[in-house]
Amino acid sequence: MGASPQTPANAAALARPRMRSYLALVGTLVLLGYAIERLNIDLERLVGMLGRIGTVLTDRYLPPNYEHILQPDYLHSVLETLEMTWFATVIGLLLAVPLAWLSAGNLTPSPRLLRPVARLVIMGVRAVHEMIWAIILVSLVGFGMLAGSLALVCFCVGFAGKLFSESLEAIDPGPIEALRASGAGSLQVFWFAALPQVRQTWAGISIYSIDAVFRAATVVGFFGAGGMGWFLRQSTQLVASHDVAAIVLSIMLVVIVSELASTWLRHRLDQSPA
């Protein structure tokens, strides 16, 4: 075919991206240096922190007050956290599926109208942190699990919607083209050409969502949106450090358990035939 790789034109084509990546590296380092300078990070304090960790832990937080996390009220709030997680994940995933379909460039039935709307919804819910959703929703619907659940739904829609949509855009376009050519409608194309290709990925994303929503659920209560976070707030405000330690430990414990469970589930999924 065309020119050999030694021609000047090709040499330039090869050199340009390399030059660009050097520039990117230099730029990153310059920005890092600027940030350190501006933040005025005091190395002495940083090193001093390491020495203090031990004393602070033993003086203030140890031993954790295990009785605090065994009281019925607290255990009840753990249960509430699980309930919110389940509700928000199921509803969030159900909302994320149509949004992902509408916003995937290769499958959307309405590229000019519904696609931008769906993308805006997904980006919108993601732009606001789940804690801020909790604050907003508490002010709208009052304290309690409803506010927390809705905040978590928003989080789940943004989280799963983006991942669902990205996985749809990465599928093999061949079957889509084939079904379109046979006169199938866009919902049929999504259902028959796209879903079989993403089913396994989506199952993995769904399990991952439960995990992420649960982690968020443990803290939305900090602003009164239900669940165990409320107890964390009370104890920190009362400077009941031994209670705080116990609560933090219990949060870590449940998050680790849920992560182990989801890792195990996803592993099982990878090995099962589609």
Binding site: G174, E177, A178, F192, R199
Partner: peptide, 9 residues
């Protein structure tokens, strides 16, 4: 089609 374009799964 050249690449058959079947739904593989």
């Amino acid at each position: 089609f050249q690449e058959f374009n079947l739904v593989e799964r």
